[in-house]
Write a protein that binds this DNA or RNA. Structure first.
Length: 940
RNA sequence: GGGCCUGUAGCUCAGUUUCGGUUAGAGCGCACGCCUGAUAAGCGUGAGGUCGAUGGUUCAACUCCAUCCAGGCCCA
């Protein structure tokens, strides 16, 4: 007789091989056809909301691994909150304006651009953004990210553009928006402002000059040694043409300065460390240091400008270095970033007597009309003439050039728009609000606090085409800003209907109400600003354009989640716009993740050749593996990815998948509605399994709540391998396969397996949505089983399953099991046994152990999968067995020892357990008594 | 150069509420073995770490302090 046919072996069509790359797209299609997202949304109606507000990725290029990480994390959160009983809708967004798109469109156009209007260019930019939104949308959907993909928010939507303009107007109304000069990169040839990204650095030759400035203020009180002397501050610069714009000399507050008597009747002030070199350059050999000077003692003292009848103020700044020059830095706030910033602190003007062709204006007097680079020589000559030039050399250094025409660029102050950090207390209020927000990890608070505390006013204007204009007017006569509610509302309505292009198309008179006059000077002539807004302003008002305006969202959001670079970016700009115009932060919590790095922790870059693209991972392993990768790591730090890591994860995936498959196979004849066994009728090991499961649920739910997904991954993986595969399910095999199919003990095991599977599948659904659904479809119907796992809830622990006393007992039994498997392994090594069922084990215990274990002899046998366990009350160690066929082990647990012996009797052909009863029956001579009983039951 | 952060076995993570205590754990991978009734599966055993480095505080440091090294993000 073929007894195998009398067994209940696992049966399932659930495929062992996942074939994710192929099956995932099919699943996505199915979900779409079934309208799953709508169903999920409907099912959540009326529940408490949980809103994760999406930070918009830039609509340019394909997504990279970091974008994938970000979106998967968001998806895990949204799905888990949804399954935790919230109404968690996800509205994805895109950042559409800005330089990179404009730049790429420029590149594509090449020469053609010259004949095109700004409106035409803007149209192309819009089309460009649309193209990449479609591409990225498909990529995000492929990752399994669920959301309102058909109704995302785009910063270039008309309504969004209108909101951007309105929020900007509100800053004007509220008094924070102001116009002021600031130096920016300027190409004199293209006559355009350039962004940092449009600058290329090449080596270039520059003149390098040392110039002395006469100190006008008397310092003899502080430095008696200098009384009556002619004192000069000595500066060094490689841009002589900025000397006409000099308004200051900067010293480092911490450097040591000295007064040097040149031996020629003059005293020079410079940094001590640079004296030797400088004097050599100037050709003075007979010099002497006559005083030590602290920078602070010279602060705000005044010098005479060497060319004009003007003063130059001594200021202190940390940007001063000792790498070259004199330690006294020529400061022209209109022509340098740092000069501007230090000048700002001392109230110096961003003076820049240079026009948009790079020629001096009449303010520069002698040099009027001269192109700045050509004027260098004349300026040097003039300095020489005035006796201010100490030395002149030529040097080669890295100098910024225009990306387009490759000519050197200059820094030039032009009027820009700013949002003040302090006029209306924006800084103070923002700092206060930072402390209301929950920053995860907590150090995010320090990071953004430091940035807000120290940042300069926000320069929001850009001299660009692709963006939303700063929709304000200023007086043609006195330059005062014109803005009121009526104007603002009108602009909002116009843009909402026509988009931002309308601002550029229409004349001032069509945009302004009739009879508008300047409050300050009464003029009725106004200029329409055509600069556009910084794109950080665009995305920074998403809370106003999206959270506030969509019915299904709320303000503030529960959570913002981005990479930790966004403390300077989106978190920052969102905070400022929200605090500035609404008085509080637009988020209650901010979660950050690190950056994706390679296997050795280095950043990914094309030049290093260590880039891993999400598409490649998906094609090779599937999106689920990428998602598992996201869940497995502690994303609060940087996250490594490598072939090895992905391989490890797909191994882990297979383990989880196979564990599910095994359970499915053993549930093929199980109907939970009819066959479920109540807890009280279950054997202890089943109760113990449910106890363990209940602990997993608790851990998992808590981890979702605190966004610690790696805890879920590790717990679940450990659970599948250690608790299930290596223990519970392995032990269960005998019961499942050999018992009468409908017996209570088999049904009990199935009840538990069904519960376990139902639980872990729902627990893992936010992380592995594809696989969870695949398993879900294979699971038998139960009461209230939803059509999709994604319509179900996270598992809830059952208090009745909790059984700490039982768990303590079984943990101890597991220790003994561990000891037994060591013993079995030794026996195996000696070729005494092969399969563990070939063995019997004699456990010797002292009185206490014997008492404690005697109720569990059969449990110990079953859980160790041996043919027999006999418990004896004696010490076995040293009791060398008979015939070399016994394997004593050393005492591992105090009071316990054991002996592995070949199992007595013959192997039952049906259940493979060795038992003396095998061979006793005439009907079934190769089968044990137990199986004979089962066979009789089956036959009847 | 500055701000914030990270550095525990080959890999991914634990290491017991901010504030030190004895032989630093898990899973994977690897090696070896078993099984062939989860089978392109399953089980077992084993070998892997001077806790980035150095110095200090302490009876005692992966844990506290300092410096350094390596790496990341953001500034300059």
């Amino acid at each position: 007789m073929d007894y195998k046919k009398t067994l209940s072996l696992p049966r399932t069509k659930f495929p062992m091989k996942a074939n994710l790359a192929k099956r995932e797209p099919e699943q996505l299609k199915k979900w779409e056809e079934d309208g799953l997202h709508d169903k999920v949304r409907k099912s959540a109606k009326g529940r408490e909301q949980f809103i994760l507000h999406d930070g918009p990725p830039y609509a340019n290029g394909n997504i990279h691994i970091g974008t994938a990480l970000n979106k998967i994390l968001k998806d895990i959160i949204v799905r888990s909150r949804q399954m935790a009983g919230f109404d968690a809708v996800y509205v994805p967004g895109w950042d559409c304006h800005g330089l990179p798109i404009e730049h790429n469109v420029d590149k594509e156009l090449g020469e053609k651009k010259k004949g095109m209007s700004q409106a035409d260019v803007r149209k192309l930019c819009r089309a460009y953004a649309e193209k990449y939104i479609d591409i990225q949308r498909d990529e995000f959907k492929r990752l399994g990210v669920m959301g309102e993909w058909e109704n995302p928010y785009l910063t270039m939507n008309y309504a969004y553009e209108a909101t951007i303009a309105r929020e900007c107007c509100k800053f004007a109304l509220e008094g924070s928006l102001f116009r002021s000069k600031k130096p920016i990169y300027w190409c004199c040839d293209c006559k355009t402002a350039l962004a940092e990204a449009e600058i290329e650095y090449y080596d270039a030759a520059s003149p390098s000059i040392f110039v002395k400035f006469l100190l006008k203020d008397d310092v003899s009180n502080d430095f008696p040694a200098l009384a009556g002397k002619k004192i000069f501050m000595v500066i060094w610069t490689t841009t002589p043409w900025t000397i006409p714009a000099n308004l200051g000399i900067a010293l480092h507050p911490d450097f040591e300065y000295v007064a040097v008597d040149t031996g020629k009747g003059e005293v020079f002030v410079l940094a001590r460390e640079l004296v030797e070199n400088c004097m050599k350059t100037f050709g003075f050999s007979d010099f002497s240091i006559i005083a030590d000077i602290k920078a602070a003692d010279l602060e705000r003292k005044r010098c005479a400008h060497p060319l004009y009848d003007r003063e130059s103020l001594i200021v202190l700044g940390n940007h001063v270095t000792l790498e070259a020059g004199t330690g006294c830095v020529h400061t022209a706030p209109g022509h340098g970033r740092e000069d501007y910033e230090v000048g700002f602190e001392y109230g110096l003007d961003a003076y820049s007597p240079v026009d948009d062709r790079g020629c001096f204006t009449d303010e520069a007097d002698f040099f009027e009309g001269k192109f700045v680079f050509k004027a260098n020589k004349e300026i040097n000559a003039k300095l020489q003439e005035n006796g201010a030039l100490l030395a002149e050399e030529n040097i080669t250094h890295q100098y910024p050039h225009c990306w387009r025409c490759k000519r050197p660029v200059i820094f030039r102050a032009t009027p820009q728009w700013f949002i003040s950090m302090d006029k209306t207390g924006l800084r103070r209020r923002s700092l206060k609000e930072i402390d209301r927000v929950n920053w995860i990890p907590h150090w995010g608070r320090e990071r953004i606090y430091g940035m807000i505390e120290n940042r300069p006013d926000w320069c929001v204007s850009r001299q660009r085409a692709w963006g939303v204009p700063i929709t304000v007017f200023y007086c043609d006569k006195c330059e005062s800003l014109l803005m009121n509610r009526e104007i603002m509302d009108n602009i909002f309505d116009l843009l909402k209907e026509h988009g931002a292009d309308i601002w550029l198309e229409k004349d001032v008179k069509d945009l302004l109400p009739n009879g508008a006059t300047c409050e300050k000077c009464g003029s009725s002539s106004f200029i329409k600003e055509t600069d556009i807004l910084d794109v950080w302003f665009d995305s920074g008002v998403s809370h106003a354009a999206v959270l506030e305006q969509r019915q299904n969202l709320k303000w503030p959001a529960d959570l913002y989640l981005e990479g930790n670079d966004q403390h300077r970016g989106w978190f920052h700009s969102s905070l400022l716009t929200a605090v500035g115009l609404r008085g509080s932060a637009p988020y209650n919590a901010v979660l950050t993740h690190g950056f994706v790095v390679d296997k050795s922790g280095k950043k990914m870059s094309k030049s290093l050749g260590n880039v891993i693209a999400p598409g490649e991972v998906i094609d090779k392993y599937g999106a689920e593996i990428l998602r598992l990768w996201v869940s497995a790591t502690d994303y609060r730090d940087d996250i490594r990815i490598s072939e090895n890591i992905l391989k490890q994860l797909s191994d882990a995936y297979r383990r989880i998948r196979n564990t599910c498959r095994f359970m499915l196979g053993n549930l093929s004849d199980f109907d939970p509605l009819k066959h479920a066994v109540p807890l009280e009728s279950m054997p202890d090991i089943d109760k113990f399994a449910l106890h363990t499961l209940q602990e997993l649920i608790g851990k998992g739910r808590k981890a979702y709540e605190t966004y610690e997904f790696h805890v879920i991954y590790h717990s679940l993986h450990n659970y599948c391998t250690v608790d299930l595969s290596a223990f519970y399910l392995d032990v269960l095999k005998d019961r499942l396969y050999t018992s009468p199919p409908k017996s209570v003990k088999r049904r009990s095991a199935q009840t538990v397996m069904h519960t376990i599977l139902d639980t872990i599948i729902r627990l893992v659904a936010p992380i592995l949505p594809f696989t969870a659904e695949e398993v879900w479809k294979f699971m038998p119907a139960r009461e209230g089983k939803e059509e999709s796992v994604h319509l179900s809830d996270l598992p809830v622990g059952n208090a009745a399953w909790k059984n700490p006393e039982l768990a303590e007992k079984w943990d101890f039994l597991l220790e003994i099991r561990k000891m037994m498997s060591k013993g079995l392994e030794e026996a195996r090594a000696k070729k005494l046994i092969g399969h563990s069922l070939d063995a019997g084990v004699i456990i010797g215990g002292n009185e206490e152990m014997y008492e404690r274990l005697s109720p569990y002899q059969e449990d110990l046998r079953a859980m160790s999968i041996v043919s027999k366990v006999s418990l004896v009350e004696e010490e076995i160690i040293g009791n060398e067995g008979t015939n070399g066929k016994e394997m004593p082990t050393t005492e591992v647990i105090e009071g316990l020892s054991l002996l592995v012996v070949p199992a007595a009797g013959n192997k039952c052909e049906r259940c493979w357990i060795c038992d003396p009863s095998v061979g006793k029956s005439s009907k079934h001579p190769t089968v044990c008594t137990r199986c004979q009983g089962v066979l009789a039951e089956i036959e009847s």
